[in-house]
Amino acid sequence: LRLEVKLGQGCFGEVWMGTWNGTTRVAIKTLKPGTMSPEAFLQEAQVMKKLRHEKLVQLYAVVSEEPIYIVTEYMSKGSLLDFLKGETGKYLRLPQLVDMAAQIASGMAYVERMNYVHRDLRAANILVGENLVCKVADFGLARLIEDNEYTARQGAKFPIKWTAPEAALYGRFTIKSDVWSFGILLTELTTKGRVPYPGMVNREVLDQVERGYRMPCPPECPESLHDLMCQCWRKEPEERPTFEYLQAFL
C-alpha cells in the first residue's frame, strides 16, 4: 500500500490517493489515533465489506491497528460538496442534479434492503467520479466515533443540521433518520452546496425544527421536489418515504 497524494483533511483524519497491490488506484482514509476503537472498527469493517453495490464506494481493505487505515475505490472528482461548490458546479442544471440524487437514493435503497443504517448521509460523504457518477461513502463509521465533541451530539463536530430530530435528541438512528438526511442533501444539491438552514446555528436549528420549522423551497427548485424534501422531514419517522420510493420518484 503506497500513500501518494494527500487529498484532504477532516476533523478525524486525512484522505490520500495511493496504490494498492502495486496496480490498483485507491483512496486511503487514515484516522487520528483515539477516534475509534480498533476492535469496534474491525467489526464494522466486516459488515462494510459485505455491502456491495454500484452506488456505494467499495471497501477494499482495512488496517485495524492505530493509525487505522481504510482502503476504498478511488473517485476522481472528490466529495459531492466540493464538486457542487467548484468550477463544474456552476454548469450543473436541475436534470443532472436530480440524476445525482437518484443515484444516491439507489445506493441508499440497497442499504435499506440490507437493514443497515448510514448515520451520516450528506454531500460531504458522497463521492463523485467521471460522468457525474455518484456513490455513497463512509457508511456506518459515524457510530464508532468516540470523540466527546461528537458523541455528545451537541458538540461542534456533530452534523446536527443533517440529523433527524429523534436521532439528534435521543440517539434513535434508523434508515428513517437517513431519509431525513437525504432530504437535507437534496437542498445541498439544489443550492450547489450551500450550508443548510443558512444564518442559523446548530442550537437554533434543533429548537426550530422541533417546533415544526422546515426549510423553504430553494430558488429555481420545482415545488414537486420541495414537496419530496418535506416528506423526508415528516416528524414521525414511519411517515417518511422509503429510499425505494425516493429512487422511483426521482
Rank of each mutant, 00 (worst) to 15 (best):
L185C: 08
V47D: 03
M215G: 02
R113N: 12
L81N: 13
I175M: 14
G78Q: 06
R214W: 05
F249W: 08
P196F: 01
L94A: 08
I126R: 01
Y213I: 06
N115C: 12
G13Y: 05
M36F: 01
D178H: 01
V209R: 03
L1T: 13
E149H: 08
P241Y: 04
G13R: 03
K85V: 12
E220C: 10
G78C: 08
Q231V: 13
E223F: 14
T163C: 01
P196L: 06
L206W: 07
T24P: 10
G199D: 10
L206I: 13
A152M: 07
R119F: 03
V47T: 11
Q103V: 07
L185S: 04
P222F: 07
G212I: 02
H226G: 10
E210N: 09
N125M: 00
V133N: 08
V57Q: 10
C11H: 13
L92M: 14
E4S: 15
H226Q: 10
G22Y: 14
K176I: 05
A105D: 00
G171S: 05
E65W: 10
Q58R: 13
Y213N: 05
T191A: 09
N148K: 05
P33I: 10
V128C: 07
K157L: 14
Y116P: 00
E166T: 04
N115D: 05
E239N: 11
F243A: 15
E112R: 15
E210A: 13
M215S: 06
V111A: 03
R153V: 06
P216Q: 10
I28N: 04
V111P: 01
K29P: 01
N202T: 05
N202G: 05
D99T: 14
K49N: 04
D147V: 06
F173T: 05
F243P: 15
E220A: 11
Q43G: 13
L132S: 08
S76R: 15
T88S: 14
I126M: 08
R211Q: 09
V62E: 10
P165R: 10
R25T: 12
M75S: 05
L84E: 05
T35M: 10
S64V: 04
R240F: 00
L31E: 11
G212H: 06
G171Q: 06
V5K: 13
E66K: 15
T19C: 12
Q58A: 09
D178E: 14
V111R: 00
E14T: 15
N21Y: 14
T191F: 11
Y69Q: 05
N21D: 15
R122S: 01
T24C: 08
R240P: 01
P67S: 04
T23G: 12
A123I: 07
T88Y: 13
I175Q: 15
D138Y: 02
P216K: 09
L246H: 07
E4T: 15
I28V: 13
L250R: 07
L141K: 03
D147I: 06
V133S: 12
R143V: 04
F12L: 00
L56G: 03
L186A: 08
A45T: 03
Q43N: 13
R172Q: 06
